[in-house]
């Protein structure tokens, strides 16, 4: 059976959920061979094996953290040369997309980004993508070379599928471009204790209607009552009320949770682009004409300062 390379997104050995989803998709096409780089790479093997990786290729070197993107491309290319896979799957993070794109140029392959589903097809894997702020759904294929495909979080279920997960060291030689862009300092994002925005099952977002950083605790309290991640519209982010890393939309994160709750958000096309594929959408807005209501499964026309706290209290009461 053909092998499929899966690029592993992990933090010091802790594998992030989208990578496990990739393993589910990879198994539809062939046998997953995982590539884990950097500190803690070997520690990823157990979890990857549990979810179907037949092999885990690992490499660690200071270059992976000291220089931007290119060292990882060199390593992924080394894995590609070693395995000759039927496809290469990479999580659709900002960095993942850049790594995938550069690999694709090097190996002379086409690239598909931000797939939301993947199936085996007669002419290679067929990817589903959302286009034009998710108003269209397209099916596409790579028609030249080995398909390189980046996949968005929440595109497939995480499934247990125990496999060998044999760890093998990957030999990597860095090219001249690897040390081109130096990372001179790195400030890790502070953990909020809430789920990762792109991976969360529930996202609770606030917009301009929240009317001040000091009011965002209302949104956070609702999120915490549901175990949800907190999102924000660009208007709220630009006003400085909430960090940019929480922005949902075209130039922020794209989310696809089971439940999306928008409070004080009008529903501009660029915001929709990042949340329109959510399974269930709920909105609270005092303007009955707000375009967000065109998307909702349930909407409340009202003042978020009254509705949201009441909702939070009721959720807490119901949960007991």
């Amino acid at each position: 059976m053909a092998e499929v390379l899966v690029y592993v997104d992990h933090v010091d050995g802790a594998v992030r959920k989208p990578t496990l989803e990739l393993l589910t998709l990879a198994r539809r096409i062939g046998e997953p061979v995982a590539v884990a780089l950097g500190a803690g790479a070997e520690a990823t093997a157990a979890v990857l094996a549990e979810h179907g990786a037949v092999k885990v290729l690992t490499a660690d070197a200071p270059e992976f953290s000291d220089y931007l993107v290119v060292p990882k491309v060199d390593a992924l290319q080394a894995a590609y040369d070693a395995v000759s896979p039927a496809a290469v799957l990479v999580p659709s993070s900002a960095e993942g997309k850049e790594i995938a794109a550069r690999l694709a140029v090097r190996i002379g392959s086409g690239i598909i980004t931000d797939a939301t589903d993947l199936e085996a097809g007669d002419e290679g894997p067929v990817a589903t993508q959302a286009a034009f702020a998710a108003s269209f759904s397209t099916k596409s294929r790579v028609s030249k070379g080995t398909p390189v495909i980046t996949v968005k979080p929440n595109s497939a279920p995480v499934e247990a599928a125990p496999a060998a997960g044999t760890v093998e060291a990957l030999a990597v030689t860095f090219g001249a471009l690897a040390t081109g862009t130096k990372v001179t300092s790195r400030t890790p994002r502070e953990s909020t204790g809430r789920p990762e925005l792109t991976e969360a099952a529930i996202v609770v977002s606030g917009g301009r209607g929240v009317n001040g950083a000091e009011n965002f605790h209302i949104i956070e309290a609702l999120a915490d009552s549901l175990g949800a991640a907190v999102g924000a519209s660009r208007a709220a982010v630009d006003a400085g009320w909430y960090p940019h890393s929480n922005q949902v939309g075209q130039t922020g994160k794209s989310v696809s949770p089971q439940l999306y709750i928008a409070s004080g958000i009008s529903g501009a096309i660029q915001h929709r682009a990042g949340m329109q594929t959510s399974k269930t959408i709920v909105a609270i807005n005092k303007d009955a004409e707000a375009p967000i209501f065109d998307l909702v499964d349930y909407g409340v026309v009202g003042d978020l300062f009254a509705v949201v706290p009441q909702l939070t209290d009721e959720i807490k009461a119901r949960k007991g």
Binding site: V282, V300, Q310, L311, I315, R318
Partner: peptide
């Protein structure tokens, strides 16, 4: 979807939906 106007119970109605 269902759209309700908040008449004082909007939060509770939404909770019931959830």
């Amino acid at each position: 979807g269902t759209i309700v106007k908040d008449e004082g119970e909007g939060g509770k109605q939404l909770a019931a939906f959830l």
